[in-house]
Design a binder for these strands. Sequence first.
DNA 1: ACGTGTGAACCGATTCACAGCA
DNA 2: TGCTGTGAATCGGTTCACACGT
Lengths: 209, 209
Amino acid sequence: MLKKIGIPQETARRLSLYLRSLRRLGQQGVDLASSEEITGFLNISPAQFRKDLSYFGGFGKRGVGYEVKVLRKEIEKILGTDVIWKIVLVGVGKLGSALLGYRGFVEFNLQIVVAFDNDPGKIGKIWEGIKIEDISKAKKIIKKNKIKIAILSVPAQAAKELSKELVSYGVKAILNFAPINLVLPKNIFVSNVDMASELESLVYKLKRS
Amino acid sequence: MLKKIGIPQETARRLSLYLRSLRRLGQQGVDLASSEEITGFLNISPAQFRKDLSYFGGFGKRGVGYEVKVLRKEIEKILGTDVIWKIVLVGVGKLGSALLGYRGFVEFNLQIVVAFDNDPGKIGKIWEGIKIEDISKAKKIIKKNKIKIAILSVPAQAAKELSKELVSYGVKAILNFAPINLVLPKNIFVSNVDMASELESLVYKLKRS
DNA sequence: ACGTGTGAACCGATTCACAGCA
DNA sequence: TGCTGTGAATCGGTTCACACGT
């Protein structure tokens, strides 16, 4: 319930990148690595890496570096990927079904356990090993499984209302793909993936480069 | 060629949100709106809105507000959405095909003109009105059409190499969906969409809330 | 000697608060 | 009067540089 303060927002995102780098080094058989080697693949400075870790403790050996395996486990613990997180996906349109099959979630122990839609043609089907349920069953299923995280991939006009419903069922965090601002209580975490806006920023940079 | 300095990175992203808000107000028949009304839908303060606009000029009337239509056109001009930008999509997998059909790009005058893949089963097909070409034709097509922007939705192991190729053909900006850091010249703009890492950050926040 | 860990300096961006103008 | 436009203050985060421990 208490919120530790003083840790930058971006640190969490970077930690997940460090994790990828450490896994890669581990696969290459590297046991010991310096901050320079770990950030070598990434676009992040060694100093930033050390600073980020310093918020959580000292995991390295001065004059030596970091034990790849140990640090990997520590970061997994910090991020919470040491246990499986169940998530639901709402909206099995084109994007939604692509996400159902997305392999990248596994590496962070994220598991889509069920998907919801309102299209009778989809309900009852199993796609990518995941059952598609009627959205009307969301309340029961989310409550029963104590799901805390939802991926929202529905059209913009439906997103606002649906997000409120999901929250009322116990969802605390939403990864939102609808290009609209969700209005939710402050204790609910929302992360927006806005692909059009992202591309647009690139256009803008191109234009003035 | 000259780069105007002093404009925050985030300002461009917010401008695209303002644009959406202005379109919405326009559709509702609103002619005049204050910074407070324009940002009402968004999660952005009126002061931030005014500050962002101030980098480009004074578009409002003191004591009154902004003309919705006029401001919309001004922002479109700033962002570059006043003309059509041709883009290519590389990698027509699940995610790639979902992006081919994504409607959100149109609002920013972004047009996917061709897609590339290396799967013979897909090459030559037309999906969502977009022709899928052999990746080996990318050089010719990109050069001929002077394409500057690419969406990269291929597996991580292919992304690094492909991104370099695209750049050698003249691509200057990449929207990258592969969970890997692309190593490219500094004058190339890359925007990463890392859905797994995004979700992971939500887990982290949940854990320590 | 070497690379970590970290306080301090720095930098960029947001917020504040009010002057300026319709 | 009301809302914009904007310097100034503030805030948060990154970078620097070096003390520290092995």
